[in-house]
Amino acid sequence: MSTSTAGSENRGRQSSDQVKEIDLLEIGRAIWDKFWFVVLLTLIGAALAFGITNFLIHPTYRSGFTAYVNNHASGSENNVSSLNSGDTAASQTLAQTYASIIKSRPVVEDAMDRISMDVNYDDIADDITTEVDTDSQLVTLDVTMENATDARNLARSIARVAPKYVASIVEGSSMKIVSSPILPDQPYAPSIPKNTAVGAIIGCLLAMIIIIIRHLTDDRIKSVEELEAKFGFSVIGTIPNFDEAANNKGKKGYYYAASKAK
């Protein structure tokens, strides 16, 4: 009795696995049959993303500078060439402090005053970012704005103010500008190719989701094989689809033959 039950369970699991495999194949076939729909939504998604990015989103420009952090003052006897590993580690730790100082309110407001930029600090605080290279003693500051000239001018002014300001706060240390801000000639964001590709991917996924949902919710039997698999009996005959036959053969199809038979 137990052996029979185990055999039934095994057959049930095998049958379930076969149904799952058939379902996956049918889903893939359904997507392939509606490939034109997938391509259409992919193109629509790409076109929408391109249009929104190109015409509705204002481009932003980024300009910045890179500074070298030294835990000795510029005029001290211990210059860069005489730094040991302990000095380097201390400088890397100071770099985190410098990154916070050079984007702080006093530094940025002083820099804006020098170029007569009438902007509130709170409005542009998020547009000023810093990054510390943990493998070196370099700190990078970037200014991102809708106007390329304003971004370059503010970054340049901060680069002029920051070294003296930092030296007055952190005694016995210095910061030197390695690369100066330049005027950006290309937008930093948004990226039209990237957004267009994302739109195309979203359109493609949306099309496949729609096809899969429609396929899974469609309970109609479309083939003899599906009928046999669902109800477990053999089909001994089928009735032809007269509509398709008439469309394929023209007016002199099954309908014409049936009327002549009468």
Score class of each variant (00 low, 15 high):
Ile201Gln: 08
Ile212Tyr: 04
Pro193Ile: 14
Gly232Pro: 11
Ile211His: 01
Ser234Trp: 03
Thr238Arg: 12
Glu228Arg: 01
Lys222Glu: 07
Lys194Gln: 09
Leu206Lys: 03
Asp219Leu: 04
Ile221Met: 02
Ala197Gln: 08
Leu205Trp: 01
Lys194Tyr: 14
Lys222Phe: 00
Glu226Ala: 08
Gly203Leu: 08
Pro193Asp: 13
Arg220Leu: 03
Arg214His: 04
Arg220Asp: 12
Val198Arg: 00
Ala189Lys: 03
Val198Gly: 07
Val224Leu: 04
Ala189Val: 06
Ala200Ile: 15
Ile213Met: 09
Ala197Arg: 05
Pro187Cys: 06
Val235Trp: 00
Asp218Tyr: 01
Pro193Ala: 12
Pro187Phe: 09
Pro193Ser: 13
Ala207Pro: 03
Ser223Gly: 08
Ala229Pro: 06
Tyr188Leu: 01
Gly199Leu: 15
Thr238Cys: 08
Ile236Phe: 05
Asp218Ser: 04
Thr196Asn: 03
Lys230Glu: 10
Gln186Glu: 14
Lys222Arg: 00
Gln186Cys: 11
Met208Pro: 01
Thr217Gly: 10
Ile212Asn: 07
Tyr188Gly: 01
Phe233Asn: 13
Pro193Trp: 15
Leu216Asp: 11
Arg214Val: 04
Thr217Asn: 13
Gly203Phe: 13
Lys194Trp: 14
Cys204Gln: 00
Arg214Gly: 05
Gly237Gln: 08
Ala197Tyr: 14
Leu206Phe: 13
Gly232Ala: 11
Gly232Asn: 10
His215Ser: 08
Cys204Thr: 07
Lys222Gln: 01
Phe231Arg: 10
Asp185Val: 15
Glu225Asp: 13
Ser234Cys: 10
Thr217Trp: 12
Asp185His: 15
Ser234Asp: 11
Pro190Thr: 08
Lys230Arg: 00
Gly232His: 06
Ile201Met: 12
Ala229Asp: 13
Pro190Asp: 07
Asp219Pro: 05
Asp185Gly: 15
Ser234Glu: 12
Leu216Ile: 10
Gly232Tyr: 04
Pro193Leu: 14
Val235Ile: 07
Phe233Arg: 13
His215Asn: 07
